[in-house]
Nucleic acid binder design. Structure first.
Length: 429
DNA sequence: TCTGGGGTCCTAGGACCC
DNA sequence: TCTGGGGTCCTAGGACCC
């Protein structure tokens, strides 16, 4: 299809990035363990079975849009015999790990971009081998873990995204070489470029830019005068000049845990119990990445689809950097009492941010009592038990004891195929 | 009746300081 | 009626992504 002619002599130090992603990832995960579902229309539902958040090709072809509320399509889904599943994130997370390990074994330099997507730095491969490499990735992942993937390789991350788009379209691995960039962009609508959303598409169109090529051929000064730094970077990337590099640190800059409730929650203590639970698991994630947080953000919201008296309360608390659940809980209690008003709440959540690494932590004179060594040890033990056994087996006694009053609804959950032995056995019956 | 969750980056505007 | 000019830091909110 495309050949790496002259590249090795012409651009000896050129970069190459691959973007690999699982096709219809969540749907494919369900199909791996239940092959009867292959070539069937299947949909994955969000928490509370509210929206359709992933679709197999067959469901896409039926015209069911992404993110649509399920209740609006109930009749249609039934009449077309669509198989629906509640999102089984522990299954998808486990399959994701396997996919990433497979990719790492082929190209060690990897950035995990999302649950189903990774960038690989392929610069160490000579251009003449990129086609072979793309093919190898394209074949190995489905062979090893059963998930089909799209593979695109190009001189920049933005172009790799585009190459991946062509990979999906033509159902083959796809490489964009530096001297073929313009050809690849010629008929690509500007809205399909990574980073160009609704608002930017409108602005671009107003300036006479309709394809990626239209933007590509503008000169730097023209772009600088009309756009912010985001679009200037994007423009460079489209021209094959890499400005976005591989980010290999897996650590997050913020951690958010939030949920919508099956039924609205009006009781103050039930709602606080939910907030405590979210906080508990957020702080657990914080410890897993060995960070301390200095900012806690909590929010509670009524149903945003009910016009009229929508209420959204939130508070941000600065605290001495910590990873101790009890410290967060104390602050959360004060904030919660501040923002709570009698309403029926539909959603609540917490966000942790302003992280420092626990390794860099140097207690100052005033803070040196902040991290209690005994408590640190105890927390570590609890985290380990929760990691190796079922989730949330152990914890602070006051957290989650009212859970039955705010829990989520997941009626169509598939078995935990990869983590529960009983379910592994079931597959073979 | 029923409408997801978790991220990143950038910008504008206010507070404060010299 | 007059009401500096920058700089920095912080936060709220927008835009975008998966």
């Amino acid at each position: 299809m495309n050949h790496p002619k002259n590249l090795s002599t012409k651009y000896p130090s050129r970069k190459a990035y691959a973007l690999v992603d699982g096709n219809n990832f969540f749907a494919s995960c369900e199909q791996v363990f239940n092959p009867k579902l292959l070539r069937k229309p299947i949909g994955i539902l969000s928490n509370n079975d509210g929206c359709i958040i992933a679709r197999s090709n067959e469901l896409k072809q039926l015209g069911v849009p992404m993110g649509t509320p399920k209740f609006k399509w109930n009749k249609f889904l039934q009449s077309h015999d669509v198989h629906l599943f509640s999102a089984n994130f522990s299954l998808y997370g486990d399959m994701s790990k396997r996919m990433m390990m497979t990719l790492t074994s082929i190209v060690p330099s990897i950035e995990i971009y999302s649950i189903d997507e990774a960038f690989l730095d392929c610069s160490m491969f000579p251009p003449s081998e990129l086609n072979k490499l793309a093919t190898r990735i394209y074949q190995t992942v489905p062979r090893w873990i059963g998930i089909p993937v799209g593979v695109g390789i190009a001189p920049t991350k933005v172009l790799a995204k585009i190459a991946n788009h062509f990979s999906k379209k033509h159902q083959c691995p796809f490489v964009i070489y530096f001297d073929k960039i313009a050809d690849s962009l010629r008929d690509l609508p500007i809205k399909d470029v990574w980073g160009i959303g609704r608002r930017l598409t409108k602005k671009m169109n107003a300036l006479g830019i309709f394809t990626a090529y239209d933007f590509y051929k503008k000169d730097e000064e023209w772009v600088k005068q009309r756009f912010s730094i985001i679009e200037q970077k994007l423009h460079k990337e489209l021209q094959g000049k890499p400005v976005l590099h591989l980010n290999r640190t897996a650590n997050k800059k913020s951690i958010c845990v939030s949920r919508s409730f099956e039924k609205s929650v009006s009781h103050k203590e039930y709602l606080f119990d939910a907030v405590s639970c979210f906080l508990n698991s957020a702080v657990e994630k914080l410890r897993r990445q060995e960070s301390l947080a200095g900012l806690l953000h909590i929010f509670i919201q009524t149903n945003r689809f009910h016009k009229g008296n929508y209420y959204s309360g939130m508070d941000i608390i600065r605290l001495t950097h910590t990873n101790e659940t009890s410290q967060f809980l104390q602050s959360a209690r004060r904030s919660f009492d501040k923002i709570w008003k009698p309403h029926s709440y539909k959603r609540a959540g917490v966000i942790l941010s302003d992280f420092i690494s626990i390794k860099d932590y140097q207690p100052t004179f005033f803070e040196n009592e902040n991290l209690n060594p005994k408590l640190q040890k105890l927390q570590k033990t609890i985290d380990t038990i929760n990691k190796t056994h079922a989730k949330q087996q152990m914890g602070i006694a006051s957290v989650g004891h009212l859970m039955k009053n705010w829990k989520m609804n997941r009626k169509n959950l598939s078995p935990a195929y990869t983590t529960r032995i009983e379910d592994l056995i079931k597959i073979h019956i």
